[in-house]
């Protein structure tokens, strides 16, 4: 009888273990403090870039959609262009990423992308064309703008909103507290980035459905 009693917990243990083993496997999530996932992407000038080729430099990823009012706000005020120049003065690489799918708001082919750059007088290192949304999903880009700052060692140091102006229509973006500028300065000074994550705001990225 007492020998039999041990069978009950043993059987139960097997049942429970089986149940737990069948849990869902989730995809990896990009996190600050972890290596930024490597990628290759086509630029609007027909070149191919790879993130790992830029080790040793600060890399900034900017998700953009030139038709999104939030993006428009940052370009019309010259805020984004100024930030791009500051970043490049620090030797940083700036990639503007377009993840809008064909037929969706903000979709551009190479030619259109270059025309938008010219019109905005924007100077990113390159515009990355991501009509399939592969790069956007890899980084979990949700809004335009959505910003990512990667340090020289390839670690993600900041992800989130460009600033604290939220979407309040009457806030002046040039006077807002710019989180990307702060992150770049703190990384250059060898400090811990703070804040390192914020909730991004803007239009949703117009991914392929």
């Amino acid at each position: 009888m007492s020998r039999f009693a041990w069978l009950i917990p043993t059987t139960a243990a097997l049942l429970v273990t089986g149940g737990v083993a069948s849990t869902i496997k989730a995809s990896a999530t990009v996190r600050v403090g972890s290596p930024a996932p490597d990628f290759t992407a086509k630029t609007s000038t027909g070149q191919t870039v790879r993130l790992s080729d830029h080790k040793g430099k600060l890399v900034i990823l900017e998700w953009t959609n030139h038709e999104c009012p939030f993006v428009v706000k940052h370009y019309r005020s010259g805020n984004m262009q100024k930030l791009q120049q500051e970043a490049q003065a620090k030797g940083a690489v700036w990639f503007s990423v377009v993840s809008s799918a064909p037929g969706q708001q903000g979709f551009v082919n190479a030619e259109q992308a270059n025309a938008v750059l010219k019109q905005n007088k924007a100077t990113p290192t390159a515009v990355l064309l991501d009509p399939e949304g592969t790069l956007g999903r890899l980084y979990g880009a949700r809004t335009t703008p959505h910003m990512f700052v990667i340090d020289k060692a390839g670690q993600l140091q900041y992800m989130g909103a460009i600033d604290d102006a939220l979407s309040l229509p009457d806030r002046d973006v040039t006077k807002a507290n710019n989180f990307v500028r702060t992150a770049m300065q703190q990384i250059m000074a060898g400090q811990k980035v703070n804040p390192s994550t914020t909730q991004p705001y803007g239009c949703s990225v117009k991914y392929k459905n």
Binding site: A12, A13, L15, V16
Partner: peptide, 8 residues
Amino acid sequence: LPTGAALG
């Protein structure tokens, strides 16, 4: 718990 484990 599931019945078996509870009896355990």
